[in-house]
Design a protein around this nucleic acid. Structure first.
Lengths: 167, 167
DNA sequence: ATTTATGCAAATCCTTTGCAAATCT
DNA sequence: AGATTTGCAAAGGATTTGCATAAAT
């Protein structure tokens, strides 16, 4: 859970799974069916999710009768963070994960009513972060901005309670 | 834990405690010695803190042999959030609280090595948040930006582990 | 007198860990 | 074979809740 992983310039891994396998190899870690299953599932859609949702979804995929346990979910997620394939943020006391490989840096709008997450990108914001860090002589590594508010849908139909999914 | 609290235009409460008392009254809640103690302690310094630190500190203030229990800490903190006197953010899986009354809106630089928090203010950032919300037709309520990096001190003495306090 | 708040103990929720058995390389 | 990984059960840490008692209005 620490050192950044630098891809060697020679081999350019293309799929998340390939990249993950390289990462594992470089660390002397092993590739298992659970890890493959999890990575393939996670990168088959571009959605935000938490550990519980992942666990449920993987258990429903009966095709693979390969069950994956909760501890393993957490262990693999942690490796994926180390590998730079996923990013995480805390929302309502739980960790929310999202792709960090092959997707541009972005931040989020969060609907306080239905929990919806909408992504946005702002170069101007990146500039500000860098500038603020410089001013305080911080070495800038990353940032997280969440704009909290009410989404258009919820603004219309007032007061329903978190009806849907994390998009 | 919800409705924004609007101060009536007539009486302008000045101290946090006064404002809290007004809030409590408006909700038919009661003012107790524990609440007073907690509010006075919290607003006697302008620092970030978590529930545990607060509990320890209040227990050391032996002047008041009024002990305050952990559940009560959490209950009062929650009221203070509702009252708009405190704001909170999640850091390393725990809630960090800070003043939200009498202090200008600001965001934070966070040192990933020693956990130090440094505040900064940026009008430009506020503008961007408003603009992004508008673009997505969100009703903007608030935002949270944390710039993660390494503070100047930690950059010098590499690799020591979270030596200090949350400033 | 009534109603809300407190403190205790226990429960919850999310996440992590110890350990023996199973799986990679 | 030898090392890592898994799954299970149980532990952990932060926060919340049920309930009887204490305190506020």
């Amino acid at each position: 859970m620490s050192q950044p992983f630098a891809l060697s310039q020679v081999d350019v891994a293309s799929t998340p799974l390939e990249r993950f396998e390289e990462f594992l190899q470089s660390r002397g870690k092993r590739i298992t069916s659970q890890k493959r299953l999890l990575v393939e599932h996670v990168f088959s859609r571009h959605e935000h999710f938490d550990a519980d949702e992942l666990l449920d979804e993987l258990r429903q995929r009966s095709e693979t009768r390969q069950r994956i346990s909760r501890p393993t979910i957490y262990r693999v997620l942690s490796e994926l963070l180390d590998a730079g394939l996923l990013r995480t943020m805390e929302l309502r006391g739980r960790s929310i994960y999202e792709h960090d490989y092959g997707y541009p840096q972005h931040d989020h709008l969060h609907c306080q009513r239905c929990d919806r997450l909408v992504e946005f990108h702002s170069e101007e914001l990146n500039r500000i972060c860098q500038q603020v860090a410089d001013e305080h002589r911080f070495r800038h590594r990353s940032h997280r901005l969440i704009v909290h508010g009410i989404c258009p849908d919820c603004a219309e139909q007032p007061r329903r309670k978190r009806p849907v999914d994390l998009v």
